[in-house]
Amino acid sequence: MEKQEFDNKFSMSLDAKHINEGFARSMVATFCVQLNASISEINDIKTAVSEAVTNSIVHGYNGNDGEILIFVGLRKNVAYIKISDKGIGIKDITKARQPFYTTKSSQERSGMGFTLMESFMDKLNVYNNSYGGVTVEMSKEIKQ
C-alpha cells in the first residue's frame, strides 16, 4: 500500500485503549467524507475500523499497553485503510477469518469481527508483521 500515490492521506498513532475506539473510527470516517461518501458507506467504514482497532486491543495486546497505527489514503474514489499493532499476532489467520471463530468465547466474543470487515469493505488483507503484531489492510470504493 505504501508504494501507491494518494490524492490525500493521513496517519495517526494512538494508545491501545478502549476509550480510543470511538475516536479512531470517527477520525477515519470523517476523513473519508471528502469522497462524498453516503451515510451508509461511512457507517461501513466506521464499523470496519472499529473491528480492527478492537482486535488489536483485545487480542493483539490482550488489554495491555500498546500502540495502534492507522493510515488512510484516498485515491480517486477509493479509501485505503491500514491498521497495525505490535502485539502477539494471530496464530492462524485463515481460522480467525471464519465466521463465529473466536479464541475468547468465555469473554462473550461473537467471532464476527473479520466477517463484518469483509462484508463492509471491498478488499481485506490480514497478515502478521515481520516485526510482530498484525496489519489489517482494507479498501472501499465510494460510489459517487
Binding site: 466506521k46 464499523t47 473491528e51 478492537t54 462473550e108 466474543r109 461473537s110 467471532g111 466477517t115 463484518l116
Partner: peptide
C-alpha cells in the same frame, strides 16, 4: 447510533 461485533457478543451472552 453505532454497534459493532462486540455488541453481538453482548447480546448472545
Amino acid at each position: 447510533s453505532f454497534m459493532d461485533s462486540t455488541g453481538i457478543g453482548v447480546l448472545l451472552g
